[in-house]
Nucleic acid binder design. Sequence first.
DNA 1: AGCCAGGTCTTCG
DNA 2: CGAAGACATGGC
Length: 248
Amino acid sequence: MVFSVDKVAYCRNEGKNAVVESDDCDYFYNFFDFDRDYSKIVKAAENEKIDALTIAAREGKGIRILNQDSFEALFSFMVSQNNNIPRIKKIIEKTCEEAGENRRVVFDGQEVTFNTFPSIERLSAKKEDFFKQAGYGYRSSFVQGFVDAVKSGLNLEEYKKLPTEDLRKKLLKIRGVGEKVADCALLFGFHRSDSFPVDTWIEKVYVEDLNGKEKDRKKIASELVDRFKENSGYYQQYLFYRKRSLSK
DNA sequence: AGCCAGGTCTTCG
DNA sequence: CGAAGACATGGC
């Protein structure tokens, strides 16, 4: 099952194909970025003539840069700071369970229930203790501040019109949003593939596989975007997933 | 038992 | 600027 805001899709593999069923196929067609020719991106990655990238792209050729909801993406990545992935998932799941709406859908005659990602209204109705008990820790004030800002006029839809650099600056003004979270939101929430989020894993890639010399994450990110331009985000995902899978 | 996690903010030199 | 600490919580 895949969830996005108040929608759900049921996914499975049939041989070489991925099958996606949903009440809203148009939405998930865009969500999974099916319009894009990823074979071109893999070829471009191979043409960079970087061993690690070539391998990563070939192994990760099924990876898509999802078109997530911008609010949900920014909110979720705000939770990711100084946190581990299993716990991030738990926090978001708990938030959906307790603040989202319960829904039912039917796939192939099978009834499925799920919780939506909560709306701004539902989130803003929650008090500080809700976030504390959901496990947000010190990030509680960040997400609450963000929710308040959106409720009182901050409009991410308007941001979509901005060029990447301007949009990036806007996102960085939000408390709790630094370079890495902004870049992830740019990539997944706004599909700005000219961004290269640098986290602990990409730092390893940069040093071990790209022979990088910079130490500062911000400099690393801008160096990589200068180098890979519009393909940055795709390469970042290939490299990220391969690095993580190797460490397990 | 500690160290660490898809970092960010604040403070201090 | 650039480095160093603090920050909540729980995964491993």
